[in-house]
Design a protein around this nucleic acid. Structure first.
Lengths: 199, 199
DNA sequence: TTGCGGTTTGACCATTTGGTCAAACCAAAT
DNA sequence: ATTTGGTTTGACCAAATGGTCAAACCGCAA
């Protein structure tokens, strides 16, 4: 079996869509096989079990997400510019249902993160340490960096996750909401910056 | 059958816990019966089907949530005080898994909201209209009230929904995170207020 | 005591679903 | 043409699961 043969790619793509939209419990192996255009037996030939396949999809999603929230400031931009960069990257990642998928599955089985935490458990959160120093040197309001981290991430992630309800609450259709989101990254960054900048 | 007999209450409580933590697809009727201390047959005697029982639980959760996000400013407090009130109410509601439950199930089946939207579909979002006027009369930054609504809700809701990952990212255990959350409502409100207040 | 209406349950059923397996298939090497 | 090794699949299986039903149960009124 070739690594990432054409068939394997089709399976992974179909599985990703299914798991992301329906969740682990709502996903059917038969459906994945259908969408990949193969038999269920073939599906099991490539990935021994549902758990096995799920793990692959989940890990891939996590591997895409972790760097996004872990990386911070490997450049010499101002803190304001860094915030803008972060919101932009984050919001474009979150758009497709990947984030809700992660939250849903982590919530279903919290242990799923246990194994993967060992790696960089020691090192401090880069965002927090960065804003610790920024708060000392620059003229900004003193807010616990833990809160800043939570707030900035919330502002970036939640609009996509709660899309359906926000739409209803704001009386917008899907298209209008998407258009609103086009200008959101900039607004979110500005909002965050203004909130902690003194003057 | 008495309305809300002791048995019925036990069922609803057990079902709520199960549906909220495992989701519709992950919930087993047998488990609900076990937790309620009755047989599966009895469970079906009270609630004809899984869908029937689920609908009850979901509607109850929605009925608790909707007023929370719809009510705004039926008092003569300042806008700052209103924001503080809102964040406080919201954050205490969100704490238990109710919010993720709603998001998960709405996402699984978007039509689930369709029926319930008719009611107040016509009236404008109160938060938005309120901030429209506030922005005209008071000395605050001009930001599309739709964005303000999204941001304020995101700040309130997401920390509870994304609890597991925030914990990991900030290197906190469950207890430390909960302690951090104790001071969060105040911080969140201040943050929001500072972000739009000119001064 | 008997009869009655609501309640409870063990046994059972049909369907769904993850997973297996022997047989067939097929392209490349001998 | 035959063999070989990876690939594909229809048929099948066992367990899980939502749901049914007749029988038993139980307080209570006649």
């Amino acid at each position: 079996m070739q690594l990432s043969s054409e068939t394997e790619k089709k399976i992974l793509e179909a599985a990703r869509v299914e798991f992301e939209t329906k969740g682990y419990n709502g996903t059917r192996m038969q459906k994945i096989a259908d969408k990949a255009g193969i038999s269920k037996a073939s599906l099991h030939y490539y990935f021994r079990s549902k758990d096995n396949l799920f793990e692959k999809i989940f890990n891939d999603a996590l591997d895409e997400y972790i760097p996004l929230i872990s990386t911070w400031a490997d450049n010499d931009l101002s803190w304001e510019a860094k915030v803008e960069q972060f919101t932009k990257d984050m919001i474009s990642f979150i758009r497709h249902g990947r984030m809700l998928f992660l939250i849903r599955e982590v919530n279903r089985n919290p242990q799923i993160l246990e194994e993967r935490i060992k790696r960089k458990a020691k090192s401090q959160n880069k965002f927090v340490t960065y804003f610790d120093t920024v708060q000392k040197s620059k003229n900004i309001r003193k807010v616990d960096p833990n809160y800043l981290y939570i707030i900035l991430n919330s502002i970036c992630s939640f609009p996509a996750i709660n899309k359906e309800m926000f739409q209803r609450a704001l009386r917008l259709n899907a298209k209008q909401y998407d258009e609103l989101m086009d200008g959101y990254a900039k607004t979110a960054a500005d909002f965050f910056i203004h909130a902690i900048k003194k003057q």
